[in-house]
Structures are given as structure tokens and as C-alpha cells.
Computed example of a mutant assay.
Amino acid sequence: MISTVTRLFDPMVRLLVVALLLAIVLPVPQSQQAIGQFIANAAVFALFLLNGLKLPRDQVLRGVKDLRFHGALAIWVFGAMLFGGWGLWQAGGYLVPPLVALGFLYLGALPSTVQSATVYTSMAGGNTAHAVVAAALLNVLGVFLSAPLFALLAGSQAVAFQGEVLAKIALILLLPFALGQMLQPRFGEIVSRNPSLTKWTDRIPIAIAVYVAMSAAVNEGIWSRIAGHEWALMLAGVVVFLAYANAGAWLASGLLGMNRGDRIAFLFGGSQKSLAMGAPLATILFEPARAGIILLPLLVYHFVQLVLAAPLASSLAARPAR
């Protein structure tokens, strides 16, 4: 219980709550939306530059060697989870507004979150080394796979994955990450030994992206576009998706004959979804007003996964291995 409450008041969660409330009370004016988007893009550029600096190359090389674990996890995250999101998108189209339903497909296309997956794996007594490497590898793959996989299933009506969008992804996500990796041997150790340097620079770009996207959604009348019962249905969809993610990851790792420590790492790596990737990418793929609505399932999923993961990790840690 204490762990759950602690995670609920995690600095990232508090910052997201502030960003959402600020977007509701004081959204970016429509006349200043272009400036807000430019600031968000600049913050995202800095975020991915730091991600490139922080990721040691030897982690990637170690992960490549264990194809059985990391290959299976990648197939689960970008295969089974993607089609789980596709299923909720198809079913949700009859129950919630189309953009909210589309948000479930977008949620399914995203990689795992780094911090939560590794923290909860450690709490549950799992293979933390595997969790760290897996989260890093999945986020690298996510830079290249999430957007095209989403576009492939969603179709051109949802996102025109060409021309300007490709240029934005290359400029704002791939270029800074590549620059960070190039500079990593020289400056990566400085960053890793001084986590306070990136403590807030990791969080603030995400909050800015959420604030700008939700501001546009508020300006477009999000409260009149989503009815009360539709909010409840969206929450139910998130809970169903999270149950599918956790149960499916645990069963899949068991069928693959993994040991308990690896199964725990697979569980949290396969069920936690990355807001750090999802929020910035949404501001690139979609118009701001659409991005704010499409992000709703991801934002709700992020909060719910923190609420449920802590007691799950505690239960696994207390349960003796067979």
C-alpha cells in the first residue's frame, strides 16, 4: 500500500497532473499554438539527445547476444501488444469517439517505459539486468518502429506517414538520438555519474508535450466531444488492455520456459508503456488538437499501470519461487 501511494506521488506523476490542470485552466491560446509547438519540439529534441547520451553501447551489444529473451519481448511488445491495441481500436469505435479509440492503437504501438519496468522488476526480485537492457533496446526500436507500425494499421486517414511527418521524425527524434550516441563515448559517463543533470530534463519535455497537446484539445472543445459515459468506457478499455498485457506477458514467458527472474522482467517490460516516447511522438504525428485526444488512453494507462504495478511487484516478491 505504501509503495502504491509513493508511486502515485512520483515527481513525474505530479508534473503530469500539473500539466493537465494547466492545460484545462490556462491553455496555450490558439494564436500562440505554433510557438507552443516549436517549444515542445525543441524540448523533445533535447530529450532524445540526452537519451542517446545516457544509453551505453555495451548494453545494446549485451542485449543483442540474448536473442531468446529480448527477441521474444520485442515480438510481444511490437506484435501482441500492437494487435491488442488494434482490437480495442476496432471495438472502441462503436463505444467511444473515433480519436479516443484510435488512441488505443497508438498505445499498443509504443515501447516499454524504462524507469517503471526496471524499478518494478527489481522490487519483485526479477532479473534487473535483463530489464535494464530490454527497456533500452525496446526504446531504440520504438524510435524506428512505433510510428510506421501505427501508420500501417491505422491507414492514411489517421496519419499521413510521409513527407513532412518523416522529416519531423528524422529531425526531432532520430537526429538528436544519433548525435547523442556519437557523443556518448566522450560525454556519456559524465551524464551517467550525474543523474541530477537529467533528472528534470527527462521529465519537463514530456510535460511540455502533454501541455501543448492537451491545450489544443481543450481549445477544440474536448469536454463537449467526449461524454461522461465515454470517459468511463475509456477507463474500462485501459483496464482491459492492462490485464491483457500483464496476463499475456506472464503466460507467454512461461510458455517459452523462462526462469522466474526472467519471467518477472518479461512481465514488466512487456506491460509498461512509455509516455516518454508516446507524448513527444504524438505531437509530431498528429495535429495538436488531435494529439491531445489520441493521447488520452496513454495518459490514463500510465496512471493505472503505476497504481497496479506496485502491489503486483510486492506480491511477486512475497511469493516463493516453485
Rank of each mutant, 00 (worst) to 15 (best):
I172M: 01
G237W: 08
A167F: 10
A170P: 06
D202I: 01
K168M: 12
T201S: 13
A227Y: 09
R225F: 00
R193E: 07
A167M: 13
V239S: 10
A252G: 01
G221Y: 07
G254Q: 15
L233Y: 08
A227Q: 14
G228F: 09
P185W: 08
L235A: 04
V212F: 12
L173I: 15
S253F: 03
I226M: 03
I226L: 05
G228R: 10
V218C: 01
P185F: 03
Y211D: 07
Y244H: 08
L179A: 04
W250P: 03
I226D: 07
I208E: 08
S224C: 00
L251Y: 04
H229C: 09
V218R: 08
A209R: 10
E189M: 05
A213Q: 10
Q184Y: 09
L235D: 15
I172T: 11
I172K: 10
E189K: 14
V239C: 11
V165K: 09
H229A: 12
Q181M: 11
S215L: 11
T201C: 03
L174R: 09
M214S: 07
Q184F: 05
L242I: 14
L251M: 05
P195R: 08
H229F: 14
G228D: 10
S253V: 00
L235M: 15
M234R: 14
W231N: 14
I226R: 04
Y244W: 14
V218Y: 06
L197H: 09
A232I: 14
A207Y: 12
L166Y: 04
S224H: 06
E230G: 05
S253W: 00
V239Q: 14
V238Y: 06
H229D: 15
V165W: 06
N219Y: 04
L173N: 10
I222C: 00
I204S: 01
N246Y: 11
A245E: 01
L242W: 11
F177P: 12
S192N: 13
A170L: 10
S192H: 07
P205N: 02
K168G: 03
P176H: 03
V212S: 09
A247F: 04
A243E: 14
G221K: 13
E220N: 14
I222F: 05
V165Q: 11
L197A: 01
G228E: 12
L183K: 08
A167R: 15
S192G: 01
A178P: 13
R186L: 11
A249Y: 01
G254W: 15
E189S: 10
S192P: 03
I206F: 03
M182C: 07
P195C: 00
L183W: 15
D202H: 05
P205G: 00
V191T: 02
A252M: 08
I169L: 08
G188R: 09
A207K: 13
L251I: 06
V240I: 15
V191M: 05
G221F: 12
N246E: 04
V165D: 02
A167K: 15
L166F: 01
M182S: 08
R225K: 13
M214I: 10
L179F: 13
G237E: 06
F241T: 02
G237C: 03
N246T: 11
A245T: 03
I222H: 00
K199H: 12
G254C: 01
N194H: 05
A247G: 05
L233D: 01
I226F: 02
V212G: 07
L197S: 04
A245V: 02
I204K: 07
R225L: 04
L233I: 09
S215P: 06
